[in-house]
Design a binder for these strands. Structure first.
Length: 606
RNA sequence: GCGGGCGUAGCUCAGCUGGUUAGAGCGCCGCCCUGUCACGGCGGAGGUCGCGAGUUCAAAUCUCGUCGCUCGCGCCA
């Protein structure tokens, strides 16, 4: 017999009755009845009830083994007596009568419960991640992650993509997020950077003639965390040659749709997959106040600046802002006139908690407009308001007034807040059981910094401007669009991509508009620029956030729930003690002297 | 860098406007129990109330500071 197991803990059935078998696993639960003792033995596959029968010499031994110890048990499979069969367990018809016990790894008292959800905090879970990962939910999530990545590889290969590995130690780039830096021992004072994405490498693979590239690519960004943002994360990174934007969509969309369809009911609730029409960036910002709108929310934003600019409207708070170049945005909430005062008050205090003066509104009921600011809007203006917003009797319209950018953004937040405030089952409540996707297209190439007034790339500097060199030379930078796109789903940005700029002269021009000298371009992107001198194909691609896909499928609010090992919100790993101090010898090797902030020095001395 | 929330037993939490010896559930230890599957019963151990200062006759409770965690803003092409 095998030294550890003949079967897994999920395998034994009636067919195995009377067989002598061996199982290994963790003691999930012990139920000690004095005479007879039940052990639920667990491995990654499942649970099997094992029995230490009355009079067994093993009884005393088992009483001293704590839960979560690893044991190997040998015994005979038996049918459970009639009424004690457990229909909730796949192995519930049988049990293993233990005849021999080997303790492989005894467990100390565990710091939190594995067998049940005891609500333990994240700090504990991360510190003892190996215990946390034993729990059923994490085992499932990690298996989902594994399955999703496997499917990605399968589906990409089926479309003739080749998988690559690109360097982890590479060069720092001046654009985008902060890089994680790695000092070079051999080159004093110089640093490698961990890639924020394999952007330049995949583009150079296109120059090399590899038509279709993909990678399950690790990416690193040294910026502060969020629930959906980590220092290191993985992307399904894709690049293709001789393609248009639509070709990229048509290639990758079936891969993503297929994966979502395959795992849509992972949570136990089936989800539909709906991919909407492309949305232009500007339309998204106006209609949804976000470039990653949650399309399950049916509410839309409209511009009603002209209504509040009318001479007969006397709402001074908005008028003053409009005169300074501001705008008024409105959100129609259907059928809410019967909502209590509390509904409106709650939204108002939500707005105040976000730093706004409040959230003004008009309710149309009993044939007229009501609410705190209705009296400033005469009937004729109210009619115009209804026309623009589509509001009808019984609806309310909420207002946001500010300069255009903050107004759009706050309207987007309000749109979500209003939708969330609606009661379950309301016609405008957030749709359930659906993954709603769309491509956001036509991102602007440049944007002007509000404070400095300077023009900079608004997204990826390697994107092709839609009008090519002609646009760069003749258009106002802010009016130039890029072949730059995102894929969104349920309020998450799942993917970002572009048709790249593969012409060195256009790239030079594009960078010069953003204020980057040719020397900067050559210094920082020289490798790629050189490559473009020797026959570069038109190409483009995108990258999907794998972790966010798994978050959505598993309906987890936090990225840390879909990673085996992960750092906390401050990007520390309490389990491995990273980051950590290094020895003076290591520093010397790297030619580095620390220049610590004063507060830290004091703290360490204390 | 900034803001909100939290910090009491190994874990999760309760402890109201200050007032005897700071509680519960789970876990742990001991005893009892032949069929449970979140087994059950009895008993027990376990606390610098994050830390520091202040107010007070009296502080887990009020005030200030500080540290930690978490969510968000900034940031993240």
């Amino acid at each position: 017999m095998h030294p550890y197991r003949t079967h897994t803990c999920a395998e034994l059935r009636q067919d195995h009755v009377d067989q002598s078998v061996k199982l290994s696993g963790w003691i999930h639960r012990k139920r000690d009845h004095g005479g007879v003792l039940f052990i639920d033995l667990r491995d990654t596959h499942g649970l099997t009830q094992c029995v230490v029968d009355e009079g067994s010499p093993l009884l005393a031994q088992f009483e001293n083994i704590r839960t979560e110890s690893v044991v190997t048990v040998t015994g005979t499979v038996r049918t459970r007596p009639g009424e004690t069969q457990n229909a909730n367990m796949p192995t519930g018809d049988i049990e293993l009568y233990i005849e021999a016990l080997d303790v492989q790894g005894a467990a100390e008292v565990i710091p939190f419960q594995v067998a049940e959800d005891d609500g333990v905090g994240e700090e504990m879970r991360l510190k003892y991640r190996y215990l946390d990962l034993r729990r059923e939910k994490m085992q499932k999530n990690i298996r989902l992650r594994n399955d999703v990545i496997f499917e990605m590889r399968k589906r990409m290969r089926a479309q003739d993509f080749q998988e690559f590995q690109t360097p982890i130690l590479t060069a720092s780039s001046p654009e985008g997020a902060r890089d994680y830096l790695v000092p070079s021992r051999l080159h004093a004072g110089k640093f490698y950077a961990l890639p924020q994405a394999p952007q330049q490498f995949k583009q150079m693979l296109m120059v090399s003639g590899f038509d279709k590239y993909f990678q399950i690519a690790p990416c690193f960004r040294d910026e502060d965390g969020r629930a959906d943002r980590l220092a290191e994360f993985y992307q399904l990174d894709i690049e293709m040659s001789f393609v248009t934007q639509e070709d990229v969509f048509n290639t990758i969309q079936p891969v993503i749709e297929g994966i979502f369809e395959q795992f849509n009911d992972f949570t136990g609730t089936p989800h539909k997959i709906e991919w909407g029409e492309h949305i232009r960036y500007e339309d998204a910002m106006l209609k949804y106040g976000s470039d990653k709108p949650d399309l399950r929310n049916p509410l839309e934003i409209v511009d009603v600046t002209e209504v509040f600019a009318r001479d007969d409207v006397e709402f001074k708070a908005f008028k003053g802002t409009i005169e300074k170049g501001g705008v008024v945005r409105a959100i129609r909430a259907p059928k809410v006139s019967d909502q209590s005062r509390k509904f409106f008050d709650k939204l108002n205090s939500w707005a105040q908690s976000e730093g706004a003066p409040g959230l003004g509104y008009v309710v149309f009921k009993d044939g007229e407009g009501a609410g705190p600011i209705a009296k400033f809007i005469p009937a004729a203006a109210q009619e115009e308001l209804k026309k623009i917003s589509g509001a009808e009797e019984g609806d309310a319209v909420f207002f946001i007034c500010n300069k255009e950018k903050p107004a759009a953004k706050f309207a987007g937040l309000a749109r979500d807040a209003i939708c969330s405030a609606l009661p379950e089952g309301h016609e405008a409540a957030r749709e359930k059981g659906v993954f709603k996707f769309a491509w956001i297209i036509d991102f602007p190439m440049y944007e002007r910094d509000e404070h400095t007034g300077e023009v900079d790339f608004s997204h990826n500097p390697f994107s092709m401007p839609q009008g090519g060199m002609d646009d760069l030379e003749n258009k106002d930078p802010e009016a130039i669009y890029a072949f730059q796109y995102d894929a969104i789903c349920n309020g998450f940005e799942l993917c970002s991509g572009a048709i790249r700029n593969h012409k060195a002269d256009i790239m030079e021009k594009a960078f010069s508009i953003a204020g980057y000298d040719k020397s900067v371009l050559e210094d920082k992107f020289g490798g790629m620029l050189n490559a473009f001198q020797y026959g570069a194909p038109p190409h483009g691609g995108c990258a999907f956030g794998i972790d966010r896909i798994i978050m959505l499928l598993a309906d987890e609010p936090n990225l840390r729930e879909v990673y085996a090992f992960v750092m906390n919100g401050q990007y520390e790993d309490q389990m491995m003690s990273a980051p950590s101090d290094i020895t003076p010898e290591q520093l010397k090797d790297l030619h580095i002297k620390l220049d610590m902030p004063k507060a830290k020095i004091k703290e360490q001395a204390a």
